[in-house]
Design a binder for these strands. Structure first.
Lengths: 166, 166
DNA sequence: CAGGGAATATTGCTACGACTATAGTTGCTC
DNA sequence: GAGCAACTATAGTCGTAGCAATATTCCCTG
């Protein structure tokens, strides 16, 4: 018999990552839906809430969410229609537009967040010993920094990172 | 100021998982595309290749891939059209149908796999010290077993697990 | 200041996948 | 054996996201 590459330990290692992701994502999605949000909508809300003035340029939002710019346009369309977000013209660059969270959007997020954190606690954090968790996060950080698609709003952009200030 | 839940350490912990997943998935997808495969097509090919006789019932395939049954139908349609898969009637249960990998499908997988494993080595395994990697996998396994959406072809089905044998 | 190239957002087109309904098959019960 | 519930696969419909094309604006160079 030839050696079986299909059961290679390296394959199963990434399989583990994928399964953990899939499991968590599915549970999160179910809880988001209870509050009328999809996963990407929650992600958009979170990214904006963590930004100064609760707003971000469309392009920056796309960079931070692993969505294309057109995808961001559609999501913001929907959320604007639902009153969660608003658009604001950028004073210094008329090409750019800000997506800004409305009061209603912040309220929706505040209403969703406690349950979300509870899920994280129950299915992820709480499953591990504190020392193991710390070690796990360290390792994940290393891999993240290597793979690093610029999701952390950090130093990915070759240009000066301050263009968030428009 | 009110306490800021949006930067909660627990949120950033799952953010880490999501970012690692997204980064790996994007790189994998690019390599799959070089061989004319999408991510789900590769996953289907892998699941079938790891099964006895290189075949699986449509329902079982759906259970193992976090795809719906109709999704599996469409994917198998495409892959059958491309000659990677074939359909075979189940002799003992005429409701069921097997999806079976063709010679061409196995060849495609064998052609794709080395590069895939190389990516895993470069961006995941190779980033960590062996001891840290082992610890990481242990922790991931614990979380996986908790979240456990039955992706491992294990004991999810309430009925006897042996229905893979049709 | 005129013009070319880069950047930004949007829209049309297309592909993919989930939800639902439908048709066929099986096994159980009376 | 007829009827009925459960299961399997498929087809219809809809929502969502990516890619390419477009219009506008900005910046830099002459």
């Amino acid at each position: 018999m030839t050696k079986n590459l299909y059961d290679d330990a390296r394959i199963t290692a990434v399989g583990l990552v994928m399964e953990v992701y899939a499991g968590l994502a599915a549970r999160f999605a179910a809880q988001f839906e209870e509050h009328g949000l999809s996963t990407v909508e929650f992600e958009v809300l979170m990214r904006l809430a963590r930004s100064p003035e609760h707003q971000l340029r469309m392009t920056d939002l796309a960079a931070q969410t692993s969505l294309s710019t057109s995808g961001v346009t559609r999501v913001v369309d929907r959320m604007e229609r639902d009153g969660l977000l608003g658009r604001r013209a950028c004073p210094s660059d008329r090409r750019s537009a800000y997506a800004v969270v409305t009061e209603s959007g912040m309220a929706r997020l505040d209403e969703t967040l406690p349950g979300h954190i509870q899920l994280i606690q129950d299915w992820f954090i709480g499953q591990l010993e504190p020392a193991d968790l710390a070690s796990l996060l360290d390792s994940l950080r290393i891999v993240r920094d290597a793979v690093h698609p610029g999701a952390t709003a950090g130093s990915t952009g070759a240009a000066a990172g301050a263009n968030t200030a428009c």
